[in-house]
């Protein structure tokens, strides 16, 4: 029983990270219908910027705010300089651009901050006694904070889409860019905003994950794979679906890795992806994605 709870909590902890990054992927997808493969690296770069801020004596919380601001700027610049000039129908070109961006950010971070793992401070103190006991298992404050922030960010994004004029404009621009332009919506700006939102979510995530993974240039590699899986499973246009799918994948991975002996920790990524494949064979648009039905 204790072991089960421990594995569940372990899975949820990872699932929160997958869901967080998946949320960022969904923000980009909903604005420009692209998969940003550099989303994780942008988050990593923001974490390094937060690190630089803490080194300069800025308290951690403010360093994270700086990272978010850096994310917003980075997202805006990437959309304006690398994505927009390629035009609306350049799907594969933009996919390649995001791979290039992935490599560039990775190399740049390596050049500036070196390849050695760095320690990054947690927001709350994380001594041996700083945890909340849940049925004999430990939930660290930082992990709890990440989960709460994920819920808050998700709620904010859903509210934005559902209740605000800006959210309506964003959904219009995604659903039918040309009609959106004919209604006076500045589609380019809306797209840039989607990239900025996504990068801001990453900018929040990076510095919060860094204490657990240690701060390295490759800290987001596997997270991105799981996040892409979560976004696919949840449905690329559904923020709530992506987060839920992230949690599902985290828990499944932990349980299967723990209880199926031949899977262990080596094969658990493969198992998660096989599950994903099976789900998608039944529901190609993901668990919560909207299937496009249209009468003409």
């Amino acid at each position: 029983m204790d072991l089960l709870v421990a594995r569940l909590i372990d899975g949820l902890n990872n699932g929160v990270i997958y869901g967080f990054l998946a949320l960022a992927l969904v923000c980009v997808y909903r604005s420009t219908k692209h998969l940003n493969l550099a989303q994780g690296e942008m988050a990593m770069f923001c974490a390094f910027i937060a690190y630089a801020a803490t080194q300069a004596g800025v308290p951690v919380v403010f360093a994270i705010v700086i990272a978010i601001a850096a994310g917003v700027i980075m997202g805006g610049v990437v959309e304006r300089v690398l994505v927009r000039p390629l035009g609306h129908d350049a799907d594969y070109s933009i996919l390649l651009v995001t791979i290039g961006l992935f490599l560039a950010l990775n190399a740049t971070a390596g050049i500036i901050w070196g390849g050695e793992p760095l320690a990054f401070p947690t927001v709350f103190s994380s001594g041996a006694e700083d945890y909340i006991g849940v049925l004999g298992s430990r939930v660290r404050y930082q992990q709890l904070l990440l989960a709460v922030l994920l819920a808050a960010v998700l709620a904010a994004i859903l509210a934005l889409f559902k209740y605000t004029k800006l959210g309506l404009a964003m959904r219009t621009a995604t659903s039918n860019p040309e009609s959106a332009a004919l209604l006076g919506i500045r589609v380019n700006r809306i797209n840039a905003l989607g990239w900025m939102m996504a990068a801001a979510v990453g900018g929040l995530l990076g510095p919060l994950v860094a204490p657990g993974t240690t701060l390295t240039t490759y800290m987001m590699f596997t997270f991105l794979i799981y996040a892409a899986a979560a976004a696919t499973l949840g449905g690329f246009d559904s923020p709530g679906g992506a987060v839920l799918a992230g949690l599902i994948i985290g828990v499944l991975e932990s349980l299967i890795g723990g209880y199926v002996s031949f899977v262990g920790s080596d094969l658990k990524l493969a198992v998660a992806l096989v599950l994903l494949l099976i789900v998608l064979m039944v529901r190609p648009s993901g668990l919560f994605g909207s299937r496009r039905v249209e009468r003409v």
């Binding site: 309506l168 219009t172 040309e178 959106a180 209604l183």
Partner: peptide
Amino acid sequence: LAQVPQGRGTIADLTVEENLRAGAHV
């Protein structure tokens, strides 16, 4: 100057009422 485009330009993922709200964007 507003245009009803050829093919109707329906914003398929929005509800009918949201389509009208989107029309009032300006």
